[in-house]
Amino acid sequence: MTTVTSPLAGRAIGLANVPDPVFSGAMVGPGTAIDPVREPTEAVAPVDGLVVSMHPHAFVVMDENGHGVLTHLGIDTVQLNGEGFELLVAKGDQVRRGQPVIKWNPAAVEAAGKSPISPVVALEASTEALGGLAESGEIALGDALFTWS
């Protein structure tokens, strides 16, 4: 079983409240979302593993069980073309849970007209495979978001 921890501090809001139908409809996969604190911050790895996808606004870490966890920083942030995001690791790097992956500023994303709400998704998982899903309340960096069996 994999425990997926929060890559950001903020408030858990659940996928249903993400202002994007692809995420809110769990088309990418089940999970939850974080409404992050509005200050410059670092998104950290939610699991130990291999960075298999890396973009300024999103990354996927695959753990030893073959579970890929997507962290998507904000909604429609791909349209910012990387502006305001600083990559701290590269695709192919091994990372440890809690290791900083991307520096960004949720307040700047919001000022640019995008939502800073950040989905954390279990790729290619069934809803039934997830347990203990955090869908409300304050979340500290590194708090458990869900387990994946």
Rank of each mutant, 00 (worst) to 15 (best):
A125F: 08
L141W: 01
A134H: 12
P100R: 07
E64A: 12
I34Y: 07
P19A: 11
A45L: 09
V44G: 00
G25H: 07
A112E: 13
D143C: 04
K91Q: 15
R38D: 01
F146P: 07
N17W: 03
D63W: 11
S126K: 14
G84A: 09
R11N: 14
G14L: 09
V47E: 11
V78E: 07
A12T: 00
P40R: 03
L88I: 02
V51I: 15
S115A: 14
L15A: 04
S24W: 04
E128S: 08
D48F: 03
G31S: 14
E128V: 00
G84E: 06
G131M: 07
V51F: 01
E135N: 13
T2N: 07
N105H: 12
G49P: 00
L15R: 04
G113C: 06
L130R: 09
G137F: 08
A140T: 10
V121D: 04
L15D: 04
V47H: 10
T32A: 10
S24P: 00
A112P: 11
I75T: 12
Q94L: 10
P30M: 09
G68H: 00
A16M: 11
G92K: 06
E138Q: 13
S118T: 13
D143K: 01
E83Y: 03
R96H: 09
A144T: 08
S53W: 13
E86F: 02
I75W: 08
A90P: 01
H67V: 09
V121R: 06
K91L: 07
L141G: 00
G68E: 14
R11Y: 08
E39M: 13
D93R: 00
N81S: 12
